[in-house]
Simulated assay, not measured.
Amino acid sequence: MTYTCPSCGETHDSWPALAFRAPDSYVHLSAEEKENIAFLNSDFCVIEYPDQTDRFIRVVMTQKVKDHCSDLEYGVWVSLSEKSFQDYNDNFDNPNHQVQYFGWLSNKLPDYTFKDYIPCLVNTRPDNQRPEIVPRPDFEHPFVEDYYAGITKAEAELRIQMMFNRGQNPN
C-alpha cells in the first residue's frame, strides 16, 4: 500500500502510524474553550473545566497484524490521574524513568463503536520514548479482542484509509 502523506506531500511505501493530534475531549471543544480552558502541545493536554481537570499524555500503541510482516501503529492519547500525570510530567526528561500507570484510551479508533473509553496500562519506556499502552484484557470491547487476537492486513489497510477519509493526519 502506498499513500501520499498530507503533512509532507511525499509518497511512502510503508504504513503510516494512525496518529491523533489531540484527545477527543480537546477536539470537541469550541475555539473559545480551546483558548481559555485548554493547553495542548505534542506530548501533553490539560483541560480545566469548572468542576474538574482532565489530563492527557500522548502515547503509542501497536496492533498485531496476523498476515503481514508489519504491525499497525497508533499515536493516541490517554487520560491519567492527577498523581500519574504529575509523575510523568516531573520525569518527562528522565531517560531512565520506567513505571506503569493506569489510563483511559482517549481517542475513538476507526472501525469501532465506543460507548466508553478503554482502560489501559501505560508503560513508560527508556530513552525518552513515548509511553506504550496495552488495553486491559478483561475489558469487553471488540477492539480489545482484536488487539489480542490480531487483525488482517486488509483490516489494517481499511483503518488507514478510514483515517485519511476522516481528515486525520497519519504520520
Rank of each mutant, 00 (worst) to 15 (best):
T11D: 10
H12D: 03
S14F: 07
P16V: 07
P16M: 09
L18F: 04
A19P: 01
R21M: 09
D24Q: 12
D24H: 09
S25P: 03
S25A: 15
S25C: 04
S25T: 09
S25E: 14
Y26G: 04
L29R: 00
S30F: 02
S30L: 06
A31S: 12
E32C: 02
N36A: 05
N36G: 05
N36M: 05
A38G: 07
A38L: 05
F39N: 08
F39Y: 15
F39W: 08
L40G: 05
L40H: 03
L40A: 06
N41D: 15
N41G: 05
S42G: 03
D43S: 13
D43C: 05
D43V: 13
C45W: 02
V46E: 15
V46Y: 01
E48I: 03
E48F: 00
E48W: 00
Y49M: 04
Y49L: 04
Y49W: 14
P50H: 11
P50M: 08
D51E: 15
Q52Y: 02
Q52K: 08
D54Q: 06
D54E: 14
D54R: 03
R55Q: 09
I57Y: 14
I57E: 11
I57W: 14
V59Y: 03
V60D: 14
T62Y: 07
Q63L: 13
Q63R: 14
K64H: 12
V65R: 11
V65D: 11
K66P: 04
H68A: 15
H68N: 15
C69I: 15
C69S: 13
C69H: 14
C69G: 07
S70Q: 12
D71S: 15
D71Q: 13
L72Q: 10
L72S: 11
Y74H: 11
G75I: 13
V76H: 06
V76W: 03
V76R: 07
W77N: 04
V78W: 06
V78G: 01
S79R: 07
S79E: 09
L80D: 01
L80E: 01
L80Q: 03
S81I: 03
S81V: 02
E82P: 02
E82R: 15
K83V: 02
S84W: 01
F85W: 03
Q86R: 11
D87R: 09
D87M: 04
